[in-house]
Design a protein around this nucleic acid. Structure first.
Lengths: 255, 255
DNA sequence: TAGTGGTCTAGACCACCGT
DNA sequence: CGGTGGTCTAGACCACTAA
């Protein structure tokens, strides 16, 4: 590190603040900045460890530790002999990281189809605005869609996105896109979804869900409320999904 | 490593098997064995990195990498300046790793009470036996209980445990115990729960759940089916929990 | 064969904890 | 203060990939 050596932590600084930031944390921040700024696009190869070490003026081992953490956080993907790549929602084998629905029998999830019900620009209700760190009434995009597995309606999604970031998103664009939504967001709106928090509840199907999912009124549905964040933990999506769990289940691993 | 250097991978060995096991993996296995055998009990301090390095005949950095992974897997807990401890379900601040229920308002979870409905030794039904890697008809312990938060019934649990491992488990012992069940299992039955897989569904309350949880028949409930494993991914518990999610939710983090 | 990440070592120094 | 884990470095060698 050429300037601003991390050891300097001025003793007169804020008292309760973290008193020390190791070098590799700063390297993490620098690499993250490169990802965020689009210097390295999803799917692309980033410079080698030695190259980054030279650029940042630290040892290769320190860069290695930084990349280790970023890879653990699913921001980068290491491939021995080839290099380190920016993770992507498109070509990843593990793109099911965010859709945790599985068939009760172990069989693979046949064909997945998405039908867009609507895509409107509206003013953010208070609750949504709060979750997205916007002001109430600011523009948001509301998308409603039904996801089907093997022609069976499985999920009714209601998706809220900040209007500014998703300028130009239309039903046509959504309907004509194939593959995971987050792949579209990443390539068309420079927004990569990194992390999400979900709250799950069991609810009875209302008229809306009942109609869209073709299940009886009152059918127990799994309600999944998600807030998704991009870099720096910035919230950029709120989602309410109603899952039909008659032949499917939400899978979770605790470890 | 004094004997059996990892480099030796005989070329004539099984073709599809992993061809190379790094040193630190072997250290992980050795430390895990120590945990499993009870050489170091939950909550105890394990030897320092230097001491382990000397014992195993490797460098301190290699032991460090092994402990890093074990700490990431919640088997060990590092405390700077003090040493490395065996993780425990008793005194951990993050003992809520396995109970992912939260109040809808952010407030802390007042008092948690457990009422044991029954604790019987029975022959394992086929499905349970399969999940526990037992033979159908082998002895298992069936525990049924209700968990209440602030005197509100919240969870009806049906817990299946291998009879051999949990010899001597009785309703009295369960009822008289306070704190998380896994703490009891760990101190009384030398069984530490490490990892779990859960499948979530929404279901309608039947007569059983309705009565035990004091909710109307047909009330949507969150059904959580869990298989819990101890060391070496050995399954040692099957659980079916019915969660009342009127004022609570199941919290999950995707990252 | 050259270049990448993966492993292993040895040694230095720092931050934190208990005594 | 001594001992612990935490960070950083430098260098060696291995495993894997692609050209």
């Amino acid at each position: 590190m050429n300037e601003a050596t991390p050891r300097s932590d001025e003793p007169g600084a804020a008292p309760a603040a973290p008193r020390f930031s190791p070098l590799y944390r700063q390297i993490i921040a620098l690499i993250t900045r490169g990802l965020q700024s689009g210097e390295w696009q999803p799917g692309e190869l980033i410079p080698s460890e030695n190259e980054l070490a030279a650029r940042f003026g630290v040892s290769q081992g320190t860069v290695r530790k930084a990349i280790d953490e970023l890879a653990a956080g699913n921001l980068l993907v290491r491939k021995q002999g080839r290099g380190t790549f920016v993770a992507t929602h498109r070509s990843e084998p593990a793109q099911y990281r965010f859709l945790r629905l599985r068939r009760d029998d172990g069989r693979p999830q046949g064909e997945t189809a998405s039908r867009i019900l609507e895509c409107r620009r509206v003013r953010a209700p208070g609750e949504i605005a709060r979750a997205l760190a916007l002001r109430t009434g600011e523009a948001v995009v509301l998308v409603r869609r039904v996801l089907s597995f093997d022609a069976e309606p499985a999920v009714l999604d209601e998706i809220w996105l900040p209007g500014a970031r998703f300028r130009g998103l239309t039903a046509e664009r959504l309907q004509s896109h194939s593959g995971p939504l987050y792949g579209l967001f990443e390539s068309e709106f420079q927004t990569r979804m990194i992390r999400a928090e979900e709250r799950l509840k069991a609810v009875a199907a209302g008229a809306d869900a009942s109609g869209a999912l073709r299940v009886p009124l009152g059918e127990p549905l799994l309600l999944v409320e998600r807030v998704t964040c991009t870099y720096e933990d910035q919230p950029v999506e709120v989602r309410r999904g109603f899952y039909v769990t008659r032949h499917l289940h939400y899978f979770n691993q605790i470890s």
